[in-house]
């Protein structure tokens, strides 16, 4: 093992500095935000990257901007701060719940939005399905410039992202939709959820659903939208029982992942109940 020329952790003071440091470190480098995943690498028997670049001091990484038509969330925003900032915003309640109920209070104070989205090995990330429902986009910065791509595209590419790139912020659109986040921990709280169903629904004046976004997390290795359920929800007024029935009919689309915490069939089997709960939270 050749020791890296760089310290094991360099705390970058600015974005420019962080990008330079990541570029210099190349394949040896990796960003470190809250540390709540990376610091557990030894428990997973994973090697740590030789040279982390700490993002905790990067100016602007912790910003949350709530505009009338969109919201910008810096990658360094912690779950706790996000939940607090979105507490009273009706259309972002799903995201607020995802941020406010994940893990436990101390981890929520440390774990960041960027970390949650970038950790390819973490299937139970709460923010991912919530942001998929908001059709979020992410900004990826490198010394070459800034690139913006959909969260879906990012999820597909994140494991093979080239060195020197950094997720800097998340853009989500605001709307008249209402959102909810149904998660299922095995205990009352404190677990990673074995299944997550996030939902954002826009209704007309008569209460009919004109647009539905549903995303499922933790059931498969990577969270994804559930277009068939979205279609089933669209048209009639929102109704918990019919959402549950539709989810029951459609749940076979998912191939639940086997885990130490729960078998694959279970993750799929609880989706109808989560669909019902999510809808109930919107009524």
């Amino acid at each position: 093992m050749t020791p890296s020329a760089h310290p094991s952790l360099y705390v970058a003071p600015s974005l420019e500095d962080a990008l330079n440091a990541l570029a210099e470190r190349g394949a040896d480098g990796a960003p470190l935000a809250g540390g709540t995943w990376i610091m557990r690498a030894p428990l997973r028997h994973e090697a740590k990257s030789p040279a982390f670049v700490g993002l905790g001091r990067v100016a602007g990484f912790g910003r949350i901007e709530v505009h009338d038509d969109h919201v910008i969330i810096g990658a360094g925003v912690t779950h706790a701060r996000l939940a607090e900032a979105l507490r009273d915003i009706p259309d972002l309640q799903g995201l607020a719940a995802a941020a406010g109920r994940s893990a436990n209070p101390a981890v929520r104070r440390a774990a960041t939005v960027g970390g949650n989205l970038c950790t390819a090995g973490f299937a139970a990330a709460d923010l991912v399905p919530a942001l998929l429902c908001l059709e979020a986009e992410v900004e990826i910065a490198s010394r070459a410039g800034v690139q913006r791509l959909s969260l879906e595209a990012f999820l597909a590419a994140r494991a093979t992202l080239e060195p020197g790139r950094l997720l800097t912020q998340v853009h989500a659109l605001r709307s008249s939709a209402r959102s909810a986040h149904a998660r299922l921990p095995l205990r009352k709280a404190g677990d990673y959820p074995v299944a997550i169903l996030s939902m954002a629904v826009m209704r007309d004046d008569a209460g009919r659903v004109v647009r539905a976004r549903v995303a499922v997390g933790s059931v498969e290795a990577v969270a994804r939208r559930w277009p068939a359920l979205e279609a089933a929800l669209t048209g009639p007024p929102l109704d918990a029982a019919s959402a549950e029935r539709a989810a029951t009919d459609l749940a076979g689309e998912f191939d639940g992942r086997e885990g130490v915490d729960a078998p694959g069939w279970y993750r799929v089997a609880v989706l109808p109940a989560l669909a019902r709960r999510a809808v109930a939270a919107l009524l």
């Binding site: 360099y10 705390v11 470190l32 540390g35 700490g54 104070r109 440390a110």
Partner: peptide, 12 residues
């Protein structure tokens, strides 16, 4: 802020 010191690198 209450912090889990096991997951906090000292440099942070």
């Amino acid at each position: 802020e209450p912090t889990v010191s096991c997951l906090t690198p000292v440099a942070m």
